[in-house]
Design a protein around this nucleic acid. Structure first.
Lengths: 357, 357
DNA sequence: GTCCCGCTGGGAACCGGTTGCCGGGGGTGG
DNA sequence: CCACCCCCGGCAACCGGTTCCCAGCGGGAC
């Protein structure tokens, strides 16, 4: 005897719909919707009955149905290489916190550097009608990258969404993109200048991948600081790896094994510096007595290395917050935007004056 | 002249619907749907036309509409206190990677320890029809916690979702919950035993909040290791703070200022150990020459502290992966499950034999 | 005592997909 | 040559909400 007798009681499995609530309250679905929306006049008695039914059935309106109906808050998406890296984690935290504050949910995707995964995810975000997609972290700035990213930006823009590049290479004029960067070159310049001011003349640079924009920005800063003093750095002192602790460790061991001459080291990342530091310790070298060392990022741990690491502070969390604010603040029609956040060096104990020579 | 003439060209703003695609391909919406779904026989010619229209219009099916229609992949949600903590970040990475591998999107929420935010988020997840909600990280195991969490679990279960507790206190029998823990007590026991085996008898414990289950598990392990040797630890050596670097730093300074007597330290966390280590350094103490130090978590940085930190390895990433596998592997009808992952101590340089006395 | 208006609440269309069911047309076998 | 069947594609209902539009009812004013 189907039809009338479908008894979906309170505790029973399966979600209850707005019509179930309406039935229990003895009103129509429209009324329930209106009570919950809060606009529209509803008599006090009816409102009470509806709210009681909602409470008793533990009803929550289906977010997808709302989305399809054109109401409902779109989610925010952010994509990063690896949330495990401390600076990425701080950006992610900023993004998530700010999104939540503004009432949005955050979808996250780690790509592990895989471009295909990034593409697939962004396609999904288009299907999700994401409010914005935030791409965080540097990337290789190749023509192919620009073209691909621009296509993504257009595609998102035409779907009413928006692409935000956070610490990523911009795309040139005309692309519907918001860019938020922090000053890699400036920070590295200031840091290297600090090291040079201590009298060091041969300073090893432990860099990242040669086409990676973050890595290159920092390397440019390192070079610029030299040239600003009329010095030309020895190309043999520029080493390339990636941004991991292991890379720093390996590079440092190689430098030592090859008996490169240097009195200070600038690492592209605190993680790299950490690896380098233990390699130095393993070799029995005193820091900063025999060699000075500086990092970049000012991750919390920098203070706990021994000696405490001199580094460059980057407002990662603020970067993330800013990214979502600008992403959400604009409709698709907004002009392209390009923000550049400042950095500052924080002096601790790992860089000392160059005594001898 | 409205009606027929609505020319929504390719590049124009606004997403295209399945009916737009159908119109362009000269077929009905059903056919487009079927071509994209891949099941159902469609003639080669029609399929080609449809696919071309899809490509030309850069069409993506709306995920919300699919969800409402009952198809489509539900997303996964995970909640943690602060993604900035290294161990949390690794769990998060594991969760996200495994979810992606299984074709699910991941929603993330940082609570900063705020219970209300946690509640709100979970309510949203019910509205999102999330496949599962993964709560990660310890919590205060109060009766109020159990009751509240159980209510959440029931509510999710009745909506066809599932709650997973990952490194969180279980709820007792009968709750529709999957629990995945790692062995805090066992790990701490093994670690403390290692320290005691080196001849130390007065070992300071730098713990977490007194009602926090993770903290308590580790403290129990510390105590149990003593008792297994017939020793009764001095209660004055049990200090309580939280799991941050700053807490370790502060606690250590206090212990030093109060001239507590100890020859070794077991910290509840590598972060705490890091803070403690720099406090030790600041006080001019040699580690492990004068004091031994051990941590917990085996975060990547542990190797780069000086001396390299002896600690307990926890398979955080695997924990995250496991959480999503078990969460997704079961319908709501599955039996309650309780998994316990093992840990092991990794011996480095920060614990030495107790020489003097 | 009417008339009119404002306050409430319901019916139905719509959002953008999926899918059960049905019907037309062409190929094949008798 | 006719009938049957199968292949393919369209119609319409449905998922769970929102909202436009309209109708009924009650009260106040004349």
């Amino acid at each position: 005897m189907p039809g009338v007798g479908l008894t979906r009681k309170n505790g029973e499995a399966g979600r209850s719909t707005i019509r179930d609530v309406a039935a229990r309250a003895g009103v129509s679905a429209s009324t329930v919707s209106r009570v919950l929306a809060g606009d529209y006049p509803v008599s006090a008695a009816t409102r009470t009955r509806v709210l009681r039914a909602v409470r008793e059935m533990d009803y929550v309106a289906d977010a997808h149905a709302k989305a399809v109906a054109g109401v409902g808050t779109p989610t925010l998406a952010f994509v990063l290489e690896d949330i495990t890296g401390p600076s990425f984690a701080h950006m992610a935290h900023g993004v998530e916190r700010e999104a939540a504050r503004l009432g949005h949910l955050s979808l996250v995707c780690s790509t592990d550097g895989d471009v295909r995964r990034e593409l697939e995810f962004i396609e999904m975000m288009r299907a999700q009608r994401a409010a914005a997609v935030i791409l965080v972290g540097g990337a290789a700035d190749t023509p192919e990258y620009r073209e691909r990213t621009r296509r993504i930006a257009d595609s998102l823009a035409s779907a009413g969404s928006r692409l935000v590049l956070c610490g990523r290479p911009p795309l040139g004029p005309g692309a519907p993109v918001t860019v938020i960067e922090y000053d890699n070159e400036g920070g590295a310049h200031a840091l290297a200048a600090h090291v040079l001011a201590q009298g060091h003349r041969r300073v090893l640079f432990l860099g990242g991948k040669p086409d990676h924009t973050t890595a290159m920005g920092r390397e440019r800063g390192y070079l610029a600081a030299h040239r600003a003093r009329g010095l030309e750095p020895d190309p043999a002192l520029l080493l390339h790896g990636d941004f991991t602790r292991d890379s720093g460790h390996r590079l440092m061991r190689e430098a030592l094994a090859r008996k490169l001459e240097f009195t200070a080291i600038v690492a592209a990342t605190d993680m790299v510096a950490a690896g380098a530091l233990t390699a130095l310790h393993e070799a029995g070298l005193d820091v900063p007595g025999e060699v000075s060392l500086a990092g970049y990022d000012d991750i919390p741990f920098a203070r706990d290395l021994h000696p405490a690491l001199t580094t460059v502070h980057v407002p990662y969390e603020e970067l993330g917050r800013l990214a979502v604010r600008t992403a959400l603040g604009h409709g698709a029609e907004s002009a392209d935007e390009h923000l550049l956040l400042g950095t500052h060096v924080v002096v601790r104990d790992s860089v000392a004056a160059h005594s001898g020579h």
